[in-house]
Amino acid sequence: MKITIIAGARPNFMKIAPIIDAIRRAASGGTDIRYRLVHTGQHYDKKMSQEFFEQLDIPEPDANLEAGGGTQAEQTANIMVRFEKELMEHPADLVLVVGDVTSTMACSIVAKKLHTRVAHVEAGIRSGDIRMPEEVNRLVTDALTDYYFTTSDIANENLRRSGVTEERIFFVGNTMIDTLIKQMPRLRKPPVWETAELQPKAYFVVTLHRPANVDQEGQLRVLLQEIIALSRGLPVIFPVHPRTAKVLANAGVDAPNLYMTGPMSYLEFNYLVRQAKAVITDSGGITEETTVMGIPCMTLRDSTERPETCLTGTNELLGTSPEALRPAMERLFAGAWKKGGIPALWDGRTAERIVGHLVELK
């Protein structure tokens, strides 16, 4: 079987790394399985792309479509035009897409129009918020997918309700956790550790990039001011997403304990998360990592596509109102945050299960 694997943005890289490892192991054992890695170029900043390939031991892509930049529509169109040419020149038995970024949707559409089967890793997750670009990507991708690899029973049920038949759903676990478990011994201190004189469990990590939180300067300012006011003087480390940086430039937020940095590498960022008192975020993937590491997590969103991080893990959905932060922070400082557990099959062997299913497909 010949598989084309798609990677386009930072969340994809953590998900494809263990799959490539598992394919290599299977091939070395005599299994007839090969892959071609296509990087769409959706993320083109070195910190958010090339450095992840290097740190996670992902091989150089066989093709880089260099389709980054532009509006949502321009980026989608560029990826589709360039991937169509790529897939026509290098046909595959199956195109494997991961996650919910623009590249996931765009390459799924192209593959199906060229009569190529599609497998979706992390299928079936839903936020219920159609205003999120990622939700559109999930719905379109899952409408076209042939084989669904899922992270939870909740995702399985979402797919069943949409009419997907049982034999096409494979509950395998979470490849992001495969990567986290493998890389845990290699996590390393970022420069801000020394700059801010950080101590374990005595600082906060903040990440914000969702439109509801960062597109309006006033909302972003109030959120950060509330976080700072409730931090009891502990350092607040804020790696700033490029999307957020543009708004933040005029927000005028400053405090002695606020440390704003550029985007961090995977190994540095997760070192910070692992040692943090808590994480305050609007990211979905980070809630999965905090759940496995047992770190309290506050999500500044009204909905989540990863409810298992709340039901089983250490995450709590607060909403986007700054007023929701105070009671959550009070519980945290009182030592009353829930301990949480690890969802089923988040055990570091998800990619192995995915490849096991792939080689059985006819």
Rank of each mutant, 00 (worst) to 15 (best):
H357S: 07
E167C: 00
T290K: 14
E360A: 13
P263A: 00
G29W: 00
T151R: 08
I58C: 03
V110M: 10
P11K: 02
F333Y: 15
M184D: 12
E305K: 05
P242S: 07
T299P: 07
G285N: 05
D146S: 12
V97Q: 04
E51C: 06
T40E: 01
E268P: 01
F149C: 06
E122N: 10
E268T: 08
N156Y: 00
M293E: 14
T31R: 15
I125N: 15
E74C: 06
L318K: 08
V110I: 11
M260R: 15
T290L: 10
Q72P: 12
P296Q: 08
T314D: 05
D347T: 08
V214T: 14
G319S: 12
V192L: 03
N213I: 05
G69T: 06
A278Y: 04
S127T: 10
R160D: 01
G128Q: 07
T350I: 12
E268A: 02
D93C: 08
H209Y: 01
R168M: 03
D347A: 11
E167K: 13
G341D: 15
T31E: 15
C310A: 14
E360S: 14
G128D: 10
Y259R: 00
D178C: 09
V172A: 06
A73V: 11
Y35L: 05
D21Y: 10
A67Q: 02
P307V: 12
G30H: 12
K362Q: 14
G294F: 12
P191W: 02
D146V: 04
I16L: 11
C107H: 10
S162Q: 14
I228Q: 01
T314F: 03
I20N: 03
V222N: 05
D178H: 09
R186L: 13
T281H: 01
I20E: 06
T102F: 12
S265E: 07
